[in-house]
């Protein structure tokens, strides 16, 4: 009884900011503009225009996630290793960008990538032709990786840090070479960190919208932009809601799949 008393504020929080909004979104999704029940909005989600945008969003989000794993894992690995344990500052440097608002950082990236931006100033000073960066898919991808990389590094770093060093020593004692130790012991044991990193990067990147507008110069509408457009410009809340609902379901499914992967992995590593 007493304990549930303390959960009260959290229940209130969840109801106000999670349950209510989701219920409203779901209600809107199944209404036309007169308030009558309809599933037209849901079927509209599958039209070619939106499928194209969805495919682009998912593709970019996947690319972003893969890049974050490739960049984030070594980073977390070195930061967690003994050699770097003295350099706490390095870790702070990874976190530092997160202290600033992401819109500001994206605006700053914009002036880096522009035709007469800082990078092109260097490129032309070295005697090369200008690079076309701003307004391309690459620029959007860069912005996403830059923004979400810390979300990959942090959980991997944590899972590596809390790993029992004696397990690794045991593997070494039993004659495994460094590559084998990494592949058979370190990597499987840090998989939970990688999985939560993937979740934390994939989710925001599949629904991102400001980055695609600023760095993509509005050339590439992503799912987030389309939803924003439905609410702010087209004034079609029902369709905006059904797109949101569609995305929510999509994310739920992908998280479900990931979690399965996670439990399979940890079972396997338990039975090792």
């Amino acid at each position: 009884m007493k304990r549930s008393f303390f959960s009260g504020p959290y229940a209130l929080w969840m109801i106000m900011f999670t349950i209510f909004p989701i219920v409203f979104v779901a209600l809107y999704a199944f209404q036309d503009n007169t308030g009558a029940f309809t599933i037209d909005n849901i079927t509209r989600c599958f039209e070619g225009t939106y499928m194209k945008v969805l495919w682009r969003s998912v593709k970019l989000a996947l690319e972003c996630t893969v890049l974050c794993v490739l960049l984030g894992y070594p980073c977390a690995y070195f930061l967690a290793s003994k050699d770097f344990s003295k350099y706490k500052t390095l870790f702070v440097l990874i976190l530092l960008p997160m202290w600033m608002n992401f819109l500001l950082r994206t605006y700053a990236s914009m002036s880096l990538l522009e035709r007469n931006g800082i990078i092109n100033a260097i490129v032309t000073a070295l005697g090369f032709d200008r690079w076309n960066m701003i307004g391309t898919e690459g620029a959007v991808l860069y912005g996403m990786v830059y923004n979400y990389l810390p979300f990959m590094v942090l959980p991997i770093h944590t899972s590596l840090k809390k790993m029992d060093q004696r397990v690794i020593e045991a593997a070494q004692d039993l004659g495994a070479n460094p590559a084998r130790v990494f592949l058979k012991v370190t990597l499987p044991l840090s998989m939970s960190g990688v999985i939560s990193g993937i979740t934390m990067v994939f989710m925001p990147s599949v629904t991102t919208f400001a980055i695609s507008k600023l760095l993509g110069s509005g050339n590439f509408m992503l799912m987030g932009d389309v939803i924003e457009n439905q609410y702010m410009v087209a004034n079609d809340w029902s369709f905006g809601s059904s797109l949101s609902l569609f995305m929510t379901v999509l994310i739920l499914i992908s998280i479900g799949l990931l979690n399965r992967l996670d439990t399979n992995k940890s079972e396997r590593s338990d039975n090792w």
């Binding site: 914009m110 701003i134 307004g135 507008k213 600023l214 993509g216 110069s217 509005g218 050339n219």
Partner: peptide
Amino acid sequence: IVQGYLVDE
């Protein structure tokens, strides 16, 4: 031909 679709920027 288009470099971008923007407003305030």
